[in-house]
Each structure stands twice: as C-alpha cells, then as structure tokens.
Design a binder for these strands. Structure first.
Length: 573
RNA sequence: GCCGAUGUAGCUCAGUGGUAGAGCAACUGCAUGGUAAGCAGUAGGUCGCCAGUUCAAUCCUGGCCAUCGGCUCCA
C-alpha cells in the first residue's frame, strides 16, 4: 500500500464491510464501495433494509475479519473468467461494471473467501485497519440515477489511529452544535411551521434585523458599483412565462393558479421583470452596460425531502441582478461580477470554490451561443487568475454559469454566488440596443446573485460564526446587566446613551442574580455584556465582559462607545 | 420524488393497551444578589393529522403531513 494513504485504507475498509455483509446476508448483491472525503460507503441490494441492529452486527463481524489478519490478494482474471464468476454469483451490478471496463484482464481482490471486482490498490492485510466505525445508512440510486433501482448504502469511516477517529467524531458533534436550524431556534432567529408550509421561513425580530443589516449592506455595495435598484411583482400571467421559456423548462418547480379565467404563476426567478424594464424603451449603446438590482423574493416548488432549514427553502429572496451589455463588454462585466462576489465573501471571512458549469442535457438556444458564452466565462476566469473547476452539464437551462460555493459547518458545500451568461433571453424578448451606426444590435444578458439567496446565505453565515456574529451584524450588540434593582436608574441612563449612538441594546431588568443574567446573555452569544453595580454608577463606567468570557474590567462609557463604533465601522470579523 | 428513522408541555427528553411525567423556560412570592443556573409555589398537553382494530388507542394497523440522515434535484 502507498504509505499511509487514507483513501486506500478506507476503500479497503469498504471491502471488509462488504465481506461482513456477505457473510451475514449471503443473498445481498453488491454495488460499489468507494472511499469518499469523510470515509467510505458500500451499496448493497437487499429487499429488507438494514436495521440499526444489523449495523451493529455488521460492525462486530468487521472487527472479527480485521482480527483474522487476512491478506488482500490481487488476482488477474481473463474477462470471460471474470464474467463467469460474477454470473455464477448473480452479481448483476458488478456485471454491469465489468461491461464498462476496458482491457482483457480484470483485477479482483480477495480477503479470505470474499472476492471483489476492484482495481485496487489496497492495504496489505485487514489487520491494518485500526480505527473504523459505521456511521449511517441511507438509500441511494444505483449509479446515482433516479430511474435506477435504489440500493441500501452503508456509510462508515476509518482512520490510522483511534485518536484520529475520536477527533473526527468529536468534530461531527461540534459541527452539529453549529447547525443553523438548532441555532436559529435557540437564538430566536426564525421558524418554519408545518401549518404554514414546508420550506417557508418566518423570521423573528432578531432574524429580521440580521437579514435587514445584510440586505442594506449588499444594496449599498450594488449602488456603489453602478447598479440601479428596481422593484418587480411576485407573479405574472403565464403568457410571460411562456415567452421566457420557464413554462416549458421550469414548470414543475412553479406555482400556478387561476383567477377570473386568467392563469398566473408566482415567480421562480426575477429575470422577466428586469427584462421588461429594459424593454420599456429603446436603448442606445451609450446606455450600456445597464445593471439592475433587486432583492427579489421567489418561490420554487422544491420536491419534498430536499428542504433543509434556511439552506434549501421553497420561498427565498435573491440578491438578484441583471446586466445588459454589448458583446464587447461581456468579459469585463463577468470579471467585475466575480470580483464583486469575492469582495463580499471576504467581508465575512469565507473560503470559497469557483466552479464553471457547462451546457446541461435540457437547454434552450443554439449550441453555438452556448459555446460562445462558455468561452467568455472561461476567458474571464483565466484573466482574473483564479482557480476553478469545471462541472460538465451543470449549467442552467438558459446558459452556462460560474458558481461560487462556500462550506457549512459539516463541510457540505453550498452554492451561493452564481454568475450566468444568457444569450437566449435577449432573443426571446428581442432585446436590443442602437449602435453607433444607428443599426439595432442584440444585447447580452448576465444573471447574477452574489449572496445567492438571503436564506441560504444566512444559514451558512449562522454556521460559519456558530451564532456568535461579528458586532456589526449582531441582532443585539450590547446587553446591560444591572446587579440589583437600585442600579436600574443608571442602567436606563447607559441604555439611552448607547441607543443614541445607534447601538442595538437590551436591558435585562429582571429580578435575577448577576450570574444568572450573564449565563443567559452568554447563551444568546451577545458580543458585549455590561455589568452595572455601585462602582460603575459612581464612576460613570461599565464593567465590560465579552462573550469569549474575557472580563475587561471597568471602562468609561465613552471609551466603550468609541471601541464598539470602530469595530462596527470596520465590519470586524 | 425515492430509501430509512423520528414526531409526547415553549425547549430538551422519559413513559404506558385503561385519556400522561421530568428538567429548564413562563407566572407568583421570598431572597437585593459582583461575572455561566438562589429558594418555594402555580399554571401549562386533541401525546403530528385522519381512518381502522379493540369494551378501551398516545401506545397496535393503514393512509397522510412534517422533520432528521442520505440519494436525486437546486440559490
């Protein structure tokens, strides 16, 4: 084995899992069992799903196999021989895999009596697996296709040492504490109700403040960069959706209804509205590029089972912008948009990953336009010198796109920013501008959202900060904690002073002990706690405690105000 | 949508074929307390929804809804 290769170790552990399953459930058929970033899985075809008890038994059997110190033996078989073997065992999925393999000789790996089609490499012996654990169980389509049969997937992980495994499991627990759904509840930010509908987010006052601050921020940044705000309706007659192509390509995700014999649909995207603004008069090349911006709320009928708190909702608000430009301006506009997005993400201290998505199977427009658009995106990425990956076939139905993904607490990646070129909309709506020569030219349209949606972005943000938001976006920035009732008067005075400085302040006026008040403020993850007692009242100061548990002692009120104001202004992370 | 699990008080969770409990929170009172939970009392539940089995269902069966872990799809 390549020395200490985690992927090899994990893949080998997947073999041991399959071996254990085969020993305990001989009728089970095998799918595939690769290593993945966090561990490994193996897919099985089995009528009755595995139970949690089964997992325990399997885990135990795996430990026994490991104890046996079985060597991984590689065998090269002639294709015909391999086929005969797999046919004999009725391994229909493996047979399908075999068909896809090139070459005459096929490699198998055996541990004891268990034999698996596999290109390797593997560890030397089962005994090398020191630390493993089966983590979960789920259904998964064969080869990831929805139309294929569903197999039972068992997930697990393996490490070289017990300590590493324990640390991994601890990290998972830590990440769970940061789950935005949990924090959203405990910090009183938002809620989602069965009664109101799945995937529909209701913001509580603190969540609304958080969102509003970020909305104001993003709106300002757009204005600084030459975007004009527009406001468009939440629904249109289906005539518009037919013209835009959404009726044909996006219908299954849209909500329709009929009033007085007219059919309407709620908007799943903001583009048609912006296009109508553009079309409202004749545009000249001198006007371009035109950039429209809107915090546009859209509704998409996401299939049940895909919702995920704020990260995946049915109603969400995009920081949506549409740029109308000439072909000559395209590249520069894309570059500007990419750097704009990265600038915003930097403000929040995010890491990110750029992805170029190309033409999907279902698409509108000509192949030539698609190629041209994809090229423009590539060029822009190249010139900006940024690393990116390519996701073939992942583009939107109307054009290729550059996506930016950021990671949540559990390392799951979420697409937030997206920048999409569109040659098709301009054709469908006959969008044009008058050139220098007086002739009409077709303009190009760019769709782009930087935060993506307020919902998803807030979800990622909550997990990113673990609920301990930087002061500038904290729903409550300061909490005043008077020690006894006789300090209320001074507490109110300080509160008034801070409010005049536009700080978001709460006063805990309850008749409780200071330790109790601190505990609550701490759980609410409020950045600054001001403890007020006799000493503070006398000297016109506050005893400053941070949520990091640091006690900064007595500070003059003025000093505190200027310290906090500075941090807010700098948007300190 | 698919596979599996789950759904009991505001929150976190026990529990049983004979219509339910704990801790925290809430409310009331006592205590006026200096950096993560003071004490006592009170109130709070169509046991997700709808059917069925049963003398009797929160518990058993079926359907639906929602949530969680995945798959698929996506901002």
């Amino acid at each position: 084995m390549a020395k200490r290769d985690l992927a090899t170790l994990r893949h080998s552990t997947a073999h041991i899992l399959a071996q254990a399953v085969k020993e305990l459930f001989p009728k089970v058929k095998l799918g595939i069992g690769p290593s993945i970033p966090d561990g490994f899985y193996y897919d099985f075809e089995k009528k009755e799903p595995f139970t949690p008890e089964d997992l325990k038994r399997i885990e135990k059997r795996m430990a026994e196999i490991i104890e046996k110190d079985l060597p991984f033996k590689k065998r090269m078989l002639e294709r015909e021989e391999a086929q005969r073997l797999l046919k004999r065992d009725k391994e229909r999925f493996k047979l399908e895999l075999l068909k896809g393999l090139k070459g005459k000789r096929i490699s198998f790996y055996a541990t004891g009596d268990f034999n698996d089609l596999c290109k390797g490499p593997h560890i030397k012996s089962t005994k090398e697996v020191e630390a493993f654990k089966l983590t979960s169980m789920a259904g998964a389509y064969w080869r990831g296709k929805e139309t294929n049969p569903m197999l039972q997937r068992i997930y697990g992980t393996a490490f070289f040492t017990k300590e590493e495994l324990d640390e991994y499991l601890r990290n998972i627990e830590e990440a769970k504490k940061r789950d935005h759904r949990k924090l959203g509840k405990s910090l009183d930010l938002f809620s989602i109700h069965d009664e109101a509908g799945a995937g529909l987010v209701i913001y509580h006052p603190k969540g609304a403040i958080l969102r509003k601050i970020i909305e104001d921020f993003i709106e300002e940044e757009h204005e600084k960069r030459g975007y004009q705000s527009v406001i468009t309706p939440h629904m249109y007659r289906i005539d518009l959706w037919k013209r835009s192509g959404h009726y044909d390509f996006y219908r299954q995700l849209m909500y329709f209804f009929e009033i007085e014999n007219q059919e309407y649909a709620i908007k799943p995207m903001n583009c048609p509205g912006h296009v109508l603004v553009y079309k409202s008069k004749i545009r000249s090349y001198r006007d371009l590029p035109i950039r429209y911006f809107e915090l546009g709320t859209v509704y998409r009928h996401e299939r049940s089972g895909v919702m995920h708190g704020l990260m995946r909702a049915r109603g969400f608000t995009q920081d949506d912008g549409h740029i109308f430009c000439t072909p000559e301006q395209l590249k520069e506009e894309i570059e500007k948009a990419v750097f704009f997005a990265l600038d915003i993400l930097k403000t929040f201290g995010f890491g990110y990953k750029l992805i170029l998505s190309t033409r999907p199977e279902d698409y509108i427009g000509s192949k030539k336009n698609w190629e041209q658009a994809t090229e423009a995106l590539k060029e822009a990425l190249k010139e900006s010198g940024l690393d990116y990956e390519i996701a073939p076939g992942e583009g939107a139905f109307y054009g290729p796109k550059i996506d930016i993904q950021i990671a949540d607490a559990l390392g799951r990646l979420w697409q937030c920013s997206t920048i999409q070129v569109d040659f098709n909309f301009p054709e469908k709506f006959n969008l044009s501008y008058t050139g220098r020569d007086g002739k009409r030219y077709r303009c190009i349209m760019i769709h782009r959202a930087l935060l993506g949606s307020m919902e998803r972005f807030l979800g990622v943000l909550i997990e990113h900060y673990g609920g301990a938001f930087p002061v500038w976006i904290s729903p409550v920035q300061v909490k005043i904690l008077p020690i006894a009732e006789r300090h209320m008067e001074y507490a109110l005075e300080v509160k008034g002073r801070l409010e005049r400085e536009n700080l978001r302040v709460e006063l805990d006026s309850r008749n409780e002990k200071i330790g109790y008040k601190i505990r609550e403020a701490q759980l609410e993850k409020i950045p600054y706690m001001l403890v007020l007692g006799d000493k503070e009242a006398k000297s016109g100061s506050v005893a400053l405690r941070l949520r990091s548990e640091e006690d900064l002692g007595q500070v003059k009120v003025d000093e505190f105000v200027s310290k906090v104001s500075r941090e807010i202004k700098r948007k300190k992370n």
